[in-house]
Each structure stands twice: as structure tokens, then as C-alpha cells.
Design a protein around this nucleic acid. Structure first.
Length: 409
DNA sequence: TCTGGGGTCCTAGGACCC
DNA sequence: TCTGGGGTCCTAGGACCC
């Protein structure tokens, strides 16, 4: 692609913005989304007012509570509302480009190739100016119609567009002209490039590589041990070169592959403060029900189950097993999960986290009639839950837990 | 910075087959 | 009976993203 026509649209402090729409008293106040003050968990999103105090997404709520000023509002966040506003934002941007792909709940990629004549207005200096003005109109529409602030980057490649949208924040639009990519990127810290996380950043710093310009010039032998198979791609991205396609839709919406396999995984995990073996087993049953129910809803069977276990000292391990034949039945999942749990639980230390992941998914061909009594039972459970809510039905093991929980505050 | 919960993708070792 | 070397699949772990 010679001209910058790929756009990355990012909704600024998305979760905070949605919470402010739901509760206007939060407007103008410092806001942290993720949980109540001094509670557990981490920050999902922080408003610019709190960021000034060093609060960042991913930080523990505890840490954020210490840094944030007294008047800060801590809110849990409403997942349904977030999904709803995300869908509405998508509907708006689809008016501007025929090719839109959601990369996450608050991020969309759009292709404006071939739209120059369509959007031309007298006064536009050139095609780039036409596209940039159009994207400004688009972010304006999102702000006006939904009340959500948005930023956008426009470039010749996906990674450059993504970085540009970050540079444009808050509520800005940045078009990176063809040929200027390397110069825009060179002075930026390596961490700004998608694909370089905290670990690679530290290792690169140890070599004296702090900017993307330095990364571009670094010899392959230096980068390879750190970036592995990503080395070539990251080096190109650091010069602004990368895919000029909007890419794939998120796995949840993705089509299955020709072999009858379904891409993606289904997982669920729970972190708990203090727990002994009894609670852990209750949590395990709950996890089986959740992933099983989600698999049945998607009409898939799992060919692999993996258990993740984290001790209080953060030692984390996983144990997985192929499931033959594939299943989505709670009790079968539970039997395997219990096995894996016993295998994994080798240390006599309290557990901090338990998780289950279903993988090797395939379409449930026997979806139509329910042959197996186990599947029948699970389907019945799903029906009850649809009508009366998730907690209406539980496996026996989880039930004991629910009863006990009633006594707690 | 003492760390949620949902994902994707890569790596490395071992089993197994020919 | 000990020996290739290649290919593929499985499992566990880790880095990264939002």
C-alpha cells in the first residue's frame, strides 16, 4: 500500500467513558474501573485525572487506592453495557468504511482504500487530507452520537496505525504520511510498539536499546534471543512496515477451519485470597460448569482440557489432557479436571488461582439430537439457567459451597 | 508493579513412527 | 541390539495483547 488508508480507531479510556454515561456524576471526577476501593483485583481502566497520580490499567486496586486522591470514584464496571456501547460504536464506524474489523472491545481497524473520491470535499489539499478529515468526522460522530471520546491513527500499515492512534490520544487523529513512518517511530521508546512487552523491554534496555530507531539498527544476533520468531516482523514494524489488511475478526466471531476444528479456546479462572482444598474443589466445579456451558452455547466440543494452578507464592503451573472423544458435558469435564488437579497439586501451599481452559474445539455434529444423557442433562441445566439465572443450578460439589457462602457477609 | 480474566502465538522437550 | 535422522503430535511453559 503506498498511501496511508488503514485506520485504527481506539475508544479513549473506554470503560471509564461508559461508566460516565451510565452515571453522569462521574464526569469530571477521577474514576477507576475495576473494583471497589481497597478491594482485590486490578485496574481495568483509569481516567486521565487519576493517571496524573500514576494510576495505570493493570495495576492492583490496592496500589491504585494508595495513589488516587480521596475524591476518586472506584466502580466495578458493567460488562453488558460495555459490550453494548462497543457494538454501537461499531455501527457508527461502519457508515464510514465498508471494511471494519473489531480487534477488541474498544479497538477497530478500518480500510479506506478506494474511498478518496467518495469523501472528497472542495478544499481538501489531497487524498490524504480527504481521508484524515473523514476520520475526524467519524470520531466526531462517535463523540456526538454516543458520547464516547475516540482517537484514530491512519497509516500504511497496521502496526503504524496502531502506534499513531496512541500518539493521537486523547481525542485526536494522526495521519502518518507514506515515507515518514521510520522517522515518526525512531525516537519512540521500544515499549510503544505492539509486540514488545515488559519482558522484552527490560532485556532490550540491558543491551542499551531504548528507542525504536536503535532497535532497527541492532544486529539480528542481538535481537533473536529476545524476540525469537518475531524478530524479523518486529524489526519491520519498527520501521512502519507491516500488514496493510484490517486483519481477522476476534476469535469469538471467527469462522471455524475446514477440518471441523474451531479456532480459539474457552477459559475461565478465579483468583481467591485464602483457600484450603475444600474451597478449591468447589471452585473447580464452578469452573467446569462455566466453560462447559459456554462450549454448549457455542455448539462446540472440547478435545483438550487444561488446568492452571497458582500457589500463593505465584508459582504457576498447568496440566492438560486430550479428551477423547471430545465433550462439553460438565460431569465429564469435572472428572478430568479433578484428575488434573490432583496431578498438579504437588505442593502443600495455599492456592491463589485456579483456571480451566477448553481447547482443540470442534463443532458439535450431534448438536441436533441429544444422544447422550449427560449432554441432555447439561442442556436442561442451560435452559433452567436461561430462565432463572446462572446460580439456579449447580453441580453437587458447588452446591455445598453456595450454601456455605450464604453465611458470609 | 506483588500481578484479573479473556485470549493468541511461539518454544522446547519427549514420545512415537518410519 | 543399538542405531540413524526426519517428521509429527503432545504437553508445559512463557511472552504478549486488551
Amino acid at each position: 500500500m503506498q498511501a496511508p488508508r488503514l485506520c485504527c480507531l481506539d475508544l479513549d479510556t473506554f470503560f471509564v467513558s461508559v461508566e460516565r454515561l451510565l452515571d453522569p456524576s462521574l464526569v469530571g471526577r477521577p474514576v477507576v474501573v475495576g473494583g471497589r476501593r481497597w478491594g482485590g483485583g486490578v485496574v481495568t481502566s483509569a481516567s486521565y485525572e487519576v493517571r496524573a497520580f500514576g494510576v495505570r490499567a493493570g495495576m492492583s486496586i490496592r496500589e491504585a487506592s494508595e495513589r488516587a486522591p480521596a475524591e476518586t470514584a472506584f466502580v466495578a464496571g458493567n460488562h453488558e453495557a460495555h459490550s453494548d456501547y462497543s457494538a454501537r460504536a461499531r455501527a457508527i464506524v461502519e457508515r464510514f468504511s465498508p471494511l471494519v474489523v473489531a480487534a477488541s472491545i474498544d479497538e477497530h481497524y478500518l480500510d479506506f482504500r478506494g474511498c478518496e473520491r467518495l469523501y472528497y470535499r472542495a478544499g481538501d489539499a489531497d487524498d490524504d487530507a480527504t481521508i484524515e478529515r473523514t476520520v475526524r468526522e467519524m470520531t466526531g460522530a462517535v463523540a456526538r452520537e454516543l458520547g464516547l471520546p475516540a482517537s484514530a491513527g491512519i497509516a500504511t500499515s497496521k502496526p503504524m496505525a496502531k502506534v499513531a492512534s496512541g500518539l493521537a490520544k486523547p481525542q485526536g487523529v494522526l495521519l502518518v504520511r507514506a515515507g515518514t513512518e521510520a522517522a515518526v517511530l525512531a525516537p519512540l521508546p521500544v515499549r510503544k510498539l505492539p509486540g514488545i512487552g515488559p519482558v522484552s523491554e527490560t532485556r532490550l534496555h540491558a543491551l542499551g536499546i531504548t528507542t525504536l530507531g536503535q532497535l532497527v539498527d541492532a544486529p539480528d544476533a542481538q535481537l533473536r534471543p529476545i524476540l525469537g520468531a518475531y524478530t524479523a516482523g518486529i524489526r519491520l514494524a519498527a520501521r512502519g512496515i507491516g500488514s496493510d489488511e484490517v486483519g481477522r475478526e476476534r476469535p469469538a466471531f471467527r469462522e471455524h477451519d475446514p477440518h471441523g476444528g474451531v479456532s480459539g479456546t474457552i477459559s475461565n479462572e478465579r483468583t481467591f485470597a485464602e483457600t484450603g482444598p475444600t474451597t478449591a474443589l468447589e471452585v473447580l466445579s464452578g469452573l467446569c460448569e462455566r466453560v462447559g456451558s459456554r462450549a454448549r452455547r457455542r455448539g462446540v466440543l472440547a478435545g483438550q482440557l487444561t488446568l492452571k494452578l497458582r500457589y500463593t507464592d505465584f508459582d504457576t503451573l498447568s496440566r492438560g489432557r486430550a479428551i477423547a472423544p471430545p465433550t462439553s458435558v460438565d460431569v465429564e469435564l469435572h472428572r478430568i479436571a479433578l484428575d488434573l488437579y490432583r496431578e498438579a497439586r504437588t505442593r502443600d501451599l495455599p492456592i491463589r488461582l485456579l483456571g480451566l481452559q477448553l481447547a482443540k474445539l470442534r463443532l458439535d455434529s450431534a448438536q441436533l439430537p441429544l444422544f447422550d444423557s449427560g449432554e441432555k442433562r447439561s442442556a436442561a441445566v442451560d435452559k433452567v439457567r436461561d430462565r432463572f439465572g446462572y446460580h439456579a443450578v449447580h453441580l453437587a460439589t458447588t452446591l455445598g459451597g453456595s450454601r456455605r457462602r450464604k453465611n458470609r457477609p
